[in-house]
Simulated assay, not measured.
Amino acid sequence: GFTGQTQGVTGMMDAGWVEDDLLDFFDAKGVVEGLLSQLGVEASFEECSDKTLDSNRQAAIVIEGNRLGVVGELHLKVSQAFEISGAVYLFEINLTALLPFVIGHKMFQSIPRFPAVVRDMALVVGTEITHQQILDIIKSFPLVNQVTIFDVYAGDQVPPGKKSLAYRVVFQSPTHTLTDKEVNRVQQQILDKLSSTLGATLRA
């Protein structure tokens, strides 16, 4: 935890309520990436050794070489001590240390010349598919400026062995204002690639 004058934020995701632990470590990392992306900050992840977390499912949250937090699965002994059943994923971020990166980004970020188009996509994939696999495919397409995961769901509304991951995709061109037709074409290409590569479908 953070002490003294340091301000921090902690988030928890409980996968114990769904069958077969459908939420995984990569989903938890994706949520952290999405939160930081909303602030205009891009994080990387490195190995760490937090004793409260599972040794094989944890990572330090790093921004421009600075370790500002941690994300991972709560260690089984800790879960048992609090009588928590199932896997629990948590993240902790040092807001005091994060703030300068957010302020710096907001101050020096250039104003886009052409407007962005925002589309949301809720995908249904097998539980073995990770957030990173989906992210890599979406980001590989032209005109995709930003991708943020904003929802992870597994339960009665998706088939057994499946989970739903919802993404907000920002399309933007540096040279012209995008038309709906252009965005629709790229979005369909993304969905086709996700379907053929990962077996993803759009959630109804």
Rank of each mutant, 00 (worst) to 15 (best):
I129N: 00
I129S: 00
S85V: 09
H75N: 13
F114N: 05
V183T: 12
Q172L: 09
A122Q: 08
S49Y: 03
G1I: 11
C48E: 10
G1V: 10
L202Q: 14
V78M: 09
M107V: 06
D27Q: 00
D14P: 01
Y153W: 08
L76Q: 14
V62L: 07
I138V: 15
L194V: 05
L178R: 04
Q80K: 15
A59T: 07
V18D: 15
V18W: 05
V41K: 08
V78Y: 04
D180T: 13
G69C: 05
V186M: 03
S79Y: 03
P160W: 01
E182S: 10
T197R: 13
D50N: 15
V144D: 04
V18T: 14
Q7I: 13
L53W: 05
P159K: 06
P160T: 03
E46G: 04
A15I: 03
R119Y: 02
S110C: 02
V31G: 00
D14C: 06
S173P: 05
H75Q: 11
R67N: 14
F25L: 03
L76D: 15
P159E: 06
F82D: 10
L198M: 07
A166L: 01
A81C: 02
V32D: 01
I149E: 11
L90V: 08
V144P: 09
V70Q: 09
P115T: 10
T201D: 13
L90N: 06
D192A: 12
K193D: 13
F91I: 01
K162F: 05
Y153Q: 03
E64F: 01
D192S: 10
T6V: 15
V170A: 08
Q172T: 07
S85C: 02
E92R: 13
S196I: 06
N56H: 11
V71M: 01
T6P: 02
G4Q: 14
T148H: 02
I138P: 01
T3H: 09
F45N: 05
T6N: 10
V158P: 07
G199K: 06
L39D: 10
R113M: 11
V169Y: 00
S140F: 04
R57G: 01
V125A: 02
S55C: 04
T52H: 09
K193A: 13
K139W: 01
D136K: 10
E33N: 11
S85N: 14
S85G: 12
L165A: 04
E33H: 03
F2I: 10
F45A: 03
G69M: 05
W17C: 07
F114K: 03
S55E: 13
D50C: 02
L53G: 02
V183E: 09
T148S: 10
T177V: 14
Q5C: 03
E19I: 09
E42S: 07
S164E: 08
L39G: 00
I93N: 05
T6F: 03
G104M: 07
F141P: 03
L39V: 05
S196M: 04
I111G: 04
F2Y: 14
Y167I: 01
Y167M: 00
